[in-house]
């Protein structure tokens, strides 16, 4: 299966982290709608982690615009804005980042539960729009610290309450699930500046740090964000229309 991710596309982080966490054998294709550069590499295989950190995920490369490598069909035939995209061996293309993450976990036998479903739906409908707005405020408007994550306040509190009420280490129980990867992937770009994490949210801090330190998440963050930090995100976001939350949208045109 081939996974296409856009360099600097924010959703790249969660799909790469999920592929790593679920040890999915994917071939990565970097590139946006215009160009694709095929880079055939397998993600880490199940089993022992290598001793030396090997770069399993190639650095982002932009392909020549408009040119496809010979014998490579373009991926998703749908709206070109749909990156990331996962092309399965059957030819089916998944274009939703959360469904891609879910597929990696399903493929190794981890079935969704009411709780993982609930976190994924919440992430797609509530967290994601707010996190995009917060990221935009940070990178494009230069807001810092707590001010930048203002829009996320209630949502961060929601995570904190759930973690502390259940008393579990992870969002959907004592084991890491697709829910943790999906929520972490959306929060990481916004919260990696430590001052953005409210200090009273202890359960959230502990969970977030343990996710950030996990092998799969660290590798995904390194390949997507470091060393150019968030410059990739910034240049991507500047090309996009400013995000607007669904509730703020006009009800008619």
């Amino acid at each position: 299966m081939r996974l296409r991710v856009a360099a600097g596309g924010p959703a790249a982080l969660k799909v790469l982290a999920a592929a790593g966490a679920a040890a999915a054998p994917v071939r990565l294709v970097w590139g946006g709608p215009l160009g694709e550069t095929a880079a055939a590499v397998a993600a880490p295989l199940p089993g022992r982690e290598p001793v030396a950190p090997t770069p399993v995920i190639p650095a982002p490369q932009q392909g020549p615009p408009g040119l496809l490598p010979p014998a490579e069909r373009p991926l998703a035939q749908l709206s070109p804005t749909w990156v990331p995209a996962l092309e399965l061996d059957s030819g089916t293309v998944l274009f939703s980042p959360n469904a891609i993450c879910q597929f990696f976990f399903l493929a190794r036998g981890e079935e969704p539960t009411d709780l993982t479903n609930q976190w994924l739906e919440w992430e797609a409908t509530e967290l994601q729009p707010a996190a995009s707005a917060a990221l935009y405020a940070q990178l494009v408007h230069g807001k810092k610290g707590l001010e930048a994550v203002e829009a996320l306040g209630k949502l961060l509190a929601h995570i904190e309450q759930n973690l502390s009420r259940r008393g579990t280490a992870y969002l959907a129980g004592d084991a890491k699930s697709v829910a943790d990867v999906v929520v972490w992937g959306t929060l990481f770009p916004v919260l990696q500046d430590e001052t953005s994490l409210p200090s009273e949210m202890q359960a959230l801090r502990t969970w977030f740090q343990s996710m950030t330190l996990s092998e799969a998440c660290r590798k995904a963050a390194d390949s997507v964000l470091m060393p150019k930090a968030l410059l990739e995100f910034k240049s991507y976001l500047q090309k996009q229309p400013p995000p607007c939350l669904a509730m703020e949208r006009a009800t008619s045109n």
């Binding site: 399965l88 089916t92 399903l106 969704p112």
Partner: peptide, 9 residues
Amino acid sequence: AEEKAVVQQ
């Protein structure tokens, strides 16, 4: 797994 992911999507 594929059908489940497509339904979810």
